[in-house]
Simulated assay, not measured.
Amino acid sequence: MHQIFAWEQRKLGNIAEIVGGGTPNTNISAYWDGDINWYSPAEINEQIYVNSSQRKISEQGYNNSSARMLPVGTVLFTSRAGIGKTAILSHEGCTNQGFQSIVPNPNLLDSYFIFSRTRELKQYGETIGAGSTFVEVSGKQMANMNLMMPSTIQEQKAIGNYFAQLDQLITLHQREYICVKNGGKLC
């Protein structure tokens, strides 16, 4: 029998590191067209996982910017120009300054669990960011977000796995629908 654990309120910054991004100088060609993934908010759409960015930066560009390398499992969170779009990194990479990415502490926060809370993250970001002329949410503001959470990582993983299976099922049915709609073409 599966044991149910109590939920507790936690600050996002206590269970994850919030990491902003950076952009190398665009006038220095040696900083660009390397092999380091470098994401911009426009690339984050309806996908769950991202594994390759449209633009890439070089090692030299990375070393000469405030971009930080983000590990697999990081939840990219757009913090401006459309606050609250999310995706999970399936390969390490970095972002421009339009992100406040969530790097889960692996012992305290499951990536898919926090990704499944995208709507709540977005609502918080839009509410907090609305006070300024240029709507943006800072890393400090994201770190201060209170979330109700299962008290154990095992419970989070169980919930995260459940939502991952639902998302896979939805994707499968969407593909089947498109196939049927197109009379069997594009299947």
Rank of each mutant, 00 (worst) to 15 (best):
M1W: 09
A6D: 12
A6K: 14
E8M: 01
E8W: 00
E8S: 10
Q9E: 13
Q9W: 05
Q9G: 05
Q9T: 10
K11P: 02
G13C: 00
N14W: 08
N14L: 08
N14P: 01
A16Q: 04
A16K: 01
E17K: 15
I18T: 06
G20C: 07
G22M: 03
G22K: 06
T23H: 00
T23K: 04
P24Q: 03
T26E: 04
T26S: 07
N27W: 06
I28Q: 06
S29I: 10
A30I: 07
W32N: 06
W32C: 07
W32S: 09
D35S: 14
N37M: 02
N37V: 00
W38N: 01
Y39C: 06
S40L: 07
A42L: 13
A42T: 15
E43D: 08
I44P: 06
E46M: 12
E46A: 15
Q47K: 12
I48A: 14
N51W: 10
N51L: 10
Q54H: 13
R55P: 03
R55Y: 05
R55S: 08
I57F: 02
N63I: 03
S65V: 08
A67I: 05
M69I: 11
M69F: 11
M69Y: 11
M69P: 07
P71V: 03
V72L: 04
G73S: 08
T74E: 01
V75I: 06
V75A: 03
L76N: 05
F77C: 01
F77G: 02
T78C: 07
R80V: 04
A81E: 04
I83G: 06
G84H: 08
K85E: 01
K85T: 00
K85H: 09
T86L: 11
I88S: 00
I88V: 11
I88K: 03
E92R: 13
G93K: 09
G98N: 07
G98C: 02
F99C: 06
S101N: 00
P106D: 06
N107Q: 13
N107H: 07
D110N: 07
Y112A: 06
F113D: 00
F113C: 05
F113W: 10
F113K: 02
S116T: 02
R117W: 09
R117N: 12
L121S: 03
Q123A: 15
Q123I: 10
G125E: 00
T127M: 13
I128A: 10
I128E: 05
G129R: 01
G131N: 10
S132D: 00
F134V: 09
V135S: 02
V135D: 05
E136N: 14
E136F: 10
E136Q: 14
V137M: 08
S138G: 12
K140W: 10
A143D: 00
N144K: 09
N144Y: 03
M145L: 14
N146K: 13
N146I: 12
L147S: 03
L147H: 03
M149T: 08
Q154A: 13
Q154H: 11
Q154S: 11
Q154I: 11
Q156C: 02
Q156N: 09
A158G: 04
A158Q: 13
I159Y: 08
I159M: 08
G160L: 07
G160A: 01
N161P: 10
N161T: 12
Q165Y: 14
Q165R: 15
D167T: 12
L169G: 14
I170A: 15
L172N: 15
H173P: 05
H173L: 14
Q174C: 14
Q174N: 15
Q174E: 15
R175V: 04
V180P: 09
K181E: 13
N182S: 13
G183F: 11
L186V: 12
